[in-house]
């Protein structure tokens, strides 16, 4: 699994599209469900922060959601799951408690996801910096 993060409007989706043009694109911005049956090798799950916002799932429950995709990927060597999540951690502390909770949960869930992914990239205005890469 591969996690791609960075600030909003930094070209994360563009970067992923250029590398996985054939991927099935599942987007939280379009209100699509996180878990789906797919019949392709590459899957992109875009807008992780929005799925986190919309769900009341605990950190543990999110881990088991990620595990579903992880198992699916492991079943076939050609499969690849790419998650895209906007970094929302660096602004001023939000006024609303719900927004603070969302920001906290997103940060923790990103940390857990990073633990499961063999590769993590941060995108800065279209330029990637690989911050994790496991040797195979």
């Amino acid at each position: 699994m591969h996690f791609v993060t960075g600030g909003a409007f930094n070209g994360k989706a563009k970067w992923v599209k250029a590398r996985f043009p054939q991927a099935k694109w599942i987007s939280a911005y379009k209100g699509e469900p996180f878990i789906q049956n797919v019949h392709v090798a590459h899957v992109v799950l875009e807008g992780l922060e929005q799925w986190v916002k919309a769900s009341s799932n605990s950190r543990e429950e999110w881990l088991s959601q990620f595990a579903i995709w992880h198992r699916w990927e492991q079943e076939d060597a050609s499969r690849k799951v790419i998650f895209i999540g906007t970094d929302i951690s660096k602004g001023i502390v939000p006024m609303e408690k719900a927004d603070r909770d969302w920001r906290d949960r997103t940060g923790w869930i990103y940390q857990d996801l990073t633990g499961l992914c063999e590769r993590v990239d941060v995108i800065w205005y279209g330029i990637n910096q690989t911050i994790k890469e496991d040797s195979k």
Partner: peptide, 21 residues
């Protein structure tokens, strides 16, 4: 572009998109 949380405000969103692009 580090605010990120202002997704509710359309104008801010549009402005952020412009700056980002």
């Amino acid at each position: 572009l580090w605010e990120g949380i202002n997704h509710g405000n359309k104008l801010v969103l549009e402005y952020s998109r412009m700056i980002g692009n």
